[in-house]
Design a binder for these strands. Structure first.
Length: 718
DNA sequence: AAGCAGCCAATTTTT
DNA sequence: TTGGCTGCTT
């Protein structure tokens, strides 16, 4: 266990800065880890080093990540380095760890021991249901907005009682927030942000619990620190106290999740709050060739307010970056496929090639081209396993059985598969439940007890659930699921459905998932196995496990590519309006976040990087003519090989050819400067529409971007 | 209870 | 163009 030669084993093949980070003593640290700089290696080696040198034991540290995948990988790599048991170690996601604490201290947290977790869609339906009960008009108060408000407030650590609404609308929204809190409490459920806020309050309000954990977790390690939210940082500060050491790893240049609450400013705050003397920068990159890194460096250099770093590699310049301008999105896709076929012939696996895009809608044309070329591919980012309707339906039976106050689960399955319970029956149940201040299940039982011999409707449902409950008593979860799926009628229902075969096979897969769960999880309390499994299904939404065996092209958004690497990367749709996305331009810090996105995309490539765009593209059913992304101009010329050497001038004339020209408007091209009598000076940035209804997009110096009808706009060419 | 027409909106996403 | 949702019909 403690052989001296093992002391340094995991310090081999590391650079000076990495070693410095790994072996820091008696202080908190902020590691600025550039893309591909061996971040995970540093994090895991740090854990191993702390343990190996007996600075802490495995149970005396806490490591937190954003995704289950990252947590799993961390644990795996630590056990590769050290012969330790991972049991009892606190390595997990923010939500997972908070959930764990809340379970242990459910009494203090005022939660039932079996409380269940609502995912985002469960939360939304809970909100809709509540608003209906409160008689709130959903046009004035869209449920999605309410959800956004609630989650935003929770993310700031604010309960409804502490919200200070300054206008009547917000006041009403906040009332809904308040009622929603009560509803969750009553039903014994917690949404995602509630796990964090509940845990934060638990530590804040119970000094002894807080001190217990502070005593225990002397070392707290945080991955992807730039993505932490305000509440997550507050939680960390509380947990770390004054005498604990935080080891945070992150990259401000890869902060691309501001829209979901990430706060890069936490990096500066950490530096101040934890008295960090020197930020350690990991700038040596082990992934990409220098041409790629130099492009990335040049792009990100246009951002202000960076902590600042410059990536470099010892592996040489590599190939030039290749740029291709398609005449259309269709042409762009065909170029990509030709190129991919060539790469594949050259011996590259499809799975080492990624096609990235800014928004999901862009995948369609690409998929079409891939299918017609008969190449295996995989698109990331669809519905995940545990989010599928058939899975959620089956689990709702289990949920209701394990927590009878879960009205969400009740409503999901009361009439699914259909058993003749209509809207009026459900409304009656809801009225009665409200009147007596109990759950829908209680209301249903009431009805059942009054109707001895009825073979259908609500009484039938109540008996069904009771029977299922008896039946699964003492059986394994896998067996329970099988019983439920069969006896609830779910399986028959899907078997009858003409395209229900996939759903049935998913149900079978759910059974296997339960078996795997039991085999791989240490259960602390036998009686809570079912609850723990249900938690697992909520917290681990089930990434489609990439069957490593099949060699498929990888299609995904730039966002989901973060953290991954590929031999060859195609960044597609590099047009202004798409990347940077037009909607981002109106957000504060929007353009800089888009630039970071571009930076993330570029740094995914190991050897070959392609930048592609199209002069015309079908978007929302209309052809748009975009200008090349401004980020392309930020890449030094000498790094790029332009495959179709179209100069800007050619782009302009060729795209104008595809857009019918109004005769009177002589030679107004994309890129031309024009004057408008009212809006002043501007540059033509696009066209849309057809011959009869041609519209022209102009970016005015003072008035912003406008669409004008060609027929009426009195434009003068400058 | 299921199926369909009509309407509307349309980044990015993990837990 | 597509998909999601609503409200009406069968």
């Amino acid at each position: 266990m403690n052989q001296p030669q093992e002391n340094t084993k995991f310090l081999e093949n590391l650079n000076e800065e990495q070693i410095k980070a790994i072996t820091l003593e008696n202080q908190s640290a902020l590691i600025l880890a550039g893309a591909g700089s061996g971040k995970t290696k540093v994090l895991t080696s740090r854990i191993s080093w702390l343990i190996q040198n007996q600075i802490t034991n495995p149970t005396g540290l806490l490591a937190v990540t954003f995704t289950n995948k990252a947590a799993k990988e961390m644990l795996m790599r630590v056990t590769d380095q050290l012969p330790i048991h991972t049991r009892g170690m606190w390595v997990g996601t923010f939500h997972g760890l908070c959930n764990r604490m809340l379970r242990i201290h459910h009494r203090e947290a005022k939660l039932p021991e079996t409380f269940q977790i609502l995912d985002s869609s469960d939360q939304l339906s809970a909100i809709k249901r509540l608003m209906k009960a409160m008689n709130v008009d959903t046009d004035t108060f869209p449920p999605k907005e309410i959800q956004y408000f609630i989650n935003g407030k929770k993310d700031e650590g604010i309960r409804s009682v502490n919200v200070k609404p300054y206008d009547p609308h917000t006041k009403r929204v906040n009332e809904i927030y308040g009622e929603y809190e009560k509803q969750c409490q009553r039903e014994g459920v917690a949404d995602f942000p509630e796990l964090l806020l509940g845990c934060y309050e638990l530590l804040k309000n119970n000094i002894s619990i807080k001190e217990h954990y502070q005593q225990r977790f002397k070392h707290i390690l945080v991955d992807e620190f730039q993505d932490t939210s305000e509440l997550q940082y507050k939680w960390l500060k509380l947990l770390a106290g004054k005498d604990n050491f935080v080891f945070a790893v992150g990259d401000d240049d890869q902060s691309i999740y501001a829209f979901r609450g990430a706060r890069v400013g936490n990096m500066q705050d950490l530096e101040r709050d934890f008295k960090i003397k020197n930020i350690i920068k990991l700038e040596q990159n082990y992934r990409s060739k220098n041409n790629i890194l130099n492009a990335a460096n040049a792009i990100i250099d246009n951002n202000t307010n960076r902590l600042g770093k410059n990536l470099w590699a010892a592996s040489g310049d590599g190939d030039p970056i290749r740029q291709y301008i398609g005449l259309s999105d269709y042409d762009e896709a065909n170029f990509i496929l030709d190129e991919i076929k060539m790469l594949h012939r050259g011996g590259l696996n499809y799975s080492q090639i990624a096609i990235l895009y800014r928004s999901n809608a862009q995948s369609r044309v690409l998929e079409h081209a891939i299918v017609s070329n008969n190449i295996p591919y995989r698109v990331y980012g669809g519905l995940r396993f545990f989010e599928r309707a058939e899975i959620k339906n089956s689990l709702a039976y289990l949920r209701l059985i394990s927590n009878k106050t879960d009205d969400n689960a009740f409503l999901r399955i009361i009439n699914f598969p259909t058993r003749g319970i209509g809207a009026r029956a459900i409304e009656q149940l809801q009225d009665q439940a409200k009147l007596n201040n109990y759950s829908l299940w209680e209301a249903a039982k009431e009805i059942e007890s009054q109707n001895e011999n009825i073979q259908k409707g609500v009484p039938f449902f109540v008996r069904l659930i009771k029977n299922l409950e008896d039946e699964i008593q003492g059986t394994s979860i896998a067996e329970s699921i099988e019983s439920i799926v069969t006896h609830s009628g779910l399986k028959d229902h899907y078997l009858k459905d003409k395209d229900g075969i996939d759903r049935v096979s998913n149900l079978n897969e759910l059974v296997s998932a339960a078996v795997t769960f039991i085999n791989t999880t240490e259960i602390e309390n036998e009686a809570l196995t079912l609850v723990e499994f249900l938690n697992f299904t909520s917290l681990e939404s089930g990434e489609l496990q990439a069957s490593a065996s099949d060699d498929a092209l990888q299609l995904m958004t730039i966002h989901s590519s973060k953290g991954l690497e590929f031999d060859a990367v195609f960044i597609t749709g590099l047009e202004d309006g798409l990347c940077p996305h037009e909607q981002s331009l109106s957000e504060s810090d929007g353009l800089e976040e888009e630039r970071r996105l571009m930076y993330v995309a570029v740094t995914r490539a190991k050897n070959k990087l392609y930048l592609t765009l199209a002069q015309s593209r079908m978007l929302h059913g209309q052809t748009r003519y975009n200008i090349p992304s401004r980020f392309l101009d930020e890449i030094p010329d000498q790094l790029v090989k332009r495959l179709n050497s179209m100069k800007k001038h050619d782009i302009i004339t060729s795209s104008i050819k595809t857009a019918p020209r109004s005769e009177s408007k002589h030679e107004i091209k994309i890129g031309s400067s024009v004057t408008h009598p009212k809006f002043g000076q501007g540059v033509v940035t696009g066209y849309e529409g057809n011959e009869n209804d041609l519209r022209i997009q102009i970016k005015f110096a003072t008035q912003g971007i406008k669409w004008l009808a060609m027929e009426f706009a009195k434009l003068t060419k400058v």
